[in-house]
Each structure stands twice: as C-alpha cells, then as structure tokens.
C-alpha cells in the first residue's frame, strides 16, 4: 500500500481514486503502445487496477509501486496477446492502420501539426514488442537500465542489447533524423 494510503488509514475510496488517477495515464499509454488499440488498453488498465485491489500489496516506495504497476500492465498485455481473440483479430491492410488512426485523431488541424509525432509514433509501434517495451520505458518513463531489467525480469545486458537493436531499427525507419542519447 502506498504511503498515501497508509496515512489515510487504509485502502479507502479516496486513496484508491488517487492511486488510479496517478497511474492511469501512464499505464494506459503503456498498454496502448503494446496493444495498439484503445479498447484493449482500457481493458488491460482495468484488469491491472482490479489486481491491485485484490492483491493488498504494500510498497516500500513510490518507485516500487510504479514498477509494480508497470510490470503487471506489461504482463497483462502479454497475456492478452496470447488470447484467442487477439490471435483471430483481423488487421487492416498495410498502410491503412496508422498510428494517427489508432490514436483517434479527429481534428484536421492537430493532425497537420503533429505529423512528425505521428510518423515517429508509427515507427515505434512498428517495432517488435520486445524492443517497443524497452524503448518506451527508457525514453518516456525515463527508467534506468537496471530498473527496466527488474521490471522485465531480464538481465541488464539483455536490456542494453534490446535498446541498442531497437534504436538501430528506429534510426533506419526515421532516416537518421533523430539523435539518440547514450545509455
């Protein structure tokens, strides 16, 4: 249980709401980037908070709490990947399923402004799952290699290798337009 919940005398409605509001955007974005659609992302986040409620977990720190949520979210994504529903899902023809469409952009003006963002996001979405995970955790969540390794239950050297290969693929897709900081 987070410190906030303890201070409030237990896992009451207000502390739960605070926890959900704190992590919902982060977990939704992780789930969305893994599953590439809003419905699955919503379901996964729902499942994660349900597990949180049932688990009665107590956390040593905010970092520990966040890492737990991210780990459970990624595990739920993997579980859904293996489900018959996802396996039978029909994909749109190549070129029609775009990051912008999946993101639900509706305003033409915002589409034009964020074309660069859409192309970048599309490139990341096209990465294999194992690269996409580490790229997001490193570049967006700003987790260290060690922290990513703990969440994904992999060796640090494996995480470094995945980051390197993911970055190489992105450089090729994005035509060397971006500089990537070292790790």
């Amino acid at each position: 249980m987070s410190d906030l919940a303890k201070e409030e005398g237990g896992r009451n409605r207000e502390s739960l709401q605070h926890t959900i509001e704190t992590y919902f955007p982060t977990l939704y974005r992780i789930a969305f980037l893994q599953m590439k659609n809003t419905a699955d992302a919503e379901d996964i986040v729902q499942e994660v908070f349900f597990r949180y409620m049932k688990s009665g977990m107590e956390f040593e720190s905010r970092e520990h709490e966040k890492a737990w949520f991210i780990k459970v979210t990624l595990n739920c994504c993997r579980k859904l990947w293996r489900s018959p529903w996802v396996k039978r899902r029909v994909t749109l023809p190549e070129g029609e399923e775009r990051a912008g469409d999946v993101c639900g952009e509706t305003a033409e003006s915002s589409y034009l402004k964020d074309e660069q963002s859409r192309e970048l996001l599309q490139a990341v979405l096209e990465l294999p799952d194992k690269y996409r995970e580490v790229i997001h955790l490193f570049y967006y969540e700003e987790l260290a290699v060690k922290e990513i390794a703990e969440i994904l239950e992999k060796q640090e050297s494996t995480v470094t290798s995945l980051l390197t290969r993911g970055r190489r693929i992105l450089k090729r897709k994005l035509q060397e337009e971006y500089c990537f900081e070292e790790f």
Partner: peptide, 15 residues
C-alpha cells in the same frame, strides 16, 4: 538533428 527522447515524449503525450 532532432532529439528522439523529446520528440517521442511529445508524440506519446499526444495520445
């Protein structure tokens, strides 16, 4: 050259 981290954060925040 654009910074990937900054650009990626901006793109994800737009979701």
């Amino acid at each position: 050259m654009k910074n990937f981290r900054e650009s990626y954060r901006k793109a994800v925040d737009a979701i």
